[in-house]
């Protein structure tokens, strides 16, 4: 018997349905991305607590994240210290030429905000792009599949060591960033505005919660940057173009993650510590 059942093609969406689709698509894409990041974070934490991240690999990754970023962080935070102190001191000079609180406020701001966040952004671009490119190229050349064939879990092998290395080194780099920015700011304050170094190097505004806040931010960035970048790399498809896209996506997503975490952690700090 001839099959004469006719199925009508689906009707095109109405204008308001198209509008909903257009508006909703980016949100569903971000939601999908976040779900993938969180799932990878749990898998990486599982691998770390099982002790599955090889010690040698963790040391290698810590070296790649920390030692290889030293010059980059020195230059960036050094210039940030110079510019910040120059701008603020110029403003103060025009209103009330009293620099006694400049150093104390600068150091507090560096500890709780700028040192960890600027360091996080620098690591997001330098290290995040590298992680996405390396893992992405391993995906498209089937090296990740080969790992799975060898009973080597890619999360244990590729993600967990990077997360551990980064969680250790980003706080260290943030502490180093505070020192570099402070020394640069102090030198400029002394040379241009004649601020005594003892006056500048004042910790009187720095409280315990400021230090906790700075460290919490640094640890959070250290954890999420490799997770988000590795997820972008593991999602790479196709050839070199796919790796390129994964790298771009990693830089955008890790930078956005740093800014978002900064906002969330600072907001939580105001609620919890009222500072």
């Amino acid at each position: 018997m001839v099959n004469d059942v006719h199925v009508a093609p689906p009707a095109p969406p109405r204008w308001y349905e198209s509008l909903f689709i257009a508006v909703g698509a980016p949100f569903t894409a971000v939601g999908r991305e976040l779900r993938g990041d969180v799932a990878l974070a749990f898998a990486a934490l599982g691998a770390i607590f099982r002790g599955a991240a090889g010690r040698r690999a963790v040391v290698q990754q810590a070296y790649a994240v920390g030692n290889r970023s030293l010059f980059f962080i020195t230059a960036t935070l050094g210039f940030l210290g110079l510019i910040s102190v120059y701008q603020v001191a110029t403003q103060i000079q025009q209103i009330l030429p009293d620099f006694s609180m400049l150093g104390a406020a600068f150091i507090q701001l560096m500890i709780r905000e700028f040192a960890p966040t600027i360091t996080g952004l620098m690591i997001a671009t330098r290290v995040g792009s590298g992680i996405a490119a390396e893992i992405g190229s391993m995906v498209v050349t089937e090296q990740v599949d080969a790992l799975r064939m060898c009973n080597a879990d890619p999360v244990e092998y590729l993600v967990a060591p990077r997360v551990l290395g980064s969680v250790v080194m980003v706080p260290m780099l943030s502490i180093y960033a505070v020192l570099v920015a402070t020394l640069a700011g102090m030198a400029l304050g002394h040379a241009v505005f004649d601020i005594p170094t003892q006056t500048f190097l004042s910790l009187r505004l720095v409280k315990g919660p400021d230090i906790v806040l700075g460290l919490v931010k640094a640890v959070s960035y250290g954890f999420w940057i490799p997770i988000v970048a590795a997820h972008a790399g593991l999602s790479a498809t196709g050839g070199s173009a796919g790796v390129g896209w994964a790298t771009t996506r990693a830089v955008v997503a890790t930078s956005f993650a740093v800014v978002l975490l900064d906002f969330v952690i600072s907001g939580a700090s105001y609620v919890i510590f009222s500072v």
């Binding site: 050349t141 090296q143 080969a146 064939m149 060898c150 009973n151 080597a152």
Partner: peptide
């Protein structure tokens, strides 16, 4: 059930020996 991939897929950061030893260590 082993697989030989199209592009060899040796791990760049490991020596030839480490590449071949990996299934012994993991499996």
């Amino acid at each position: 059930c082993a697989m030989v991939f199209q592009h060899s897929t040796l791990f760049d950061s490991m020596t030839v020996l480490d590449n071949v030893a990996l299934p012994y260590r993991k499996h």
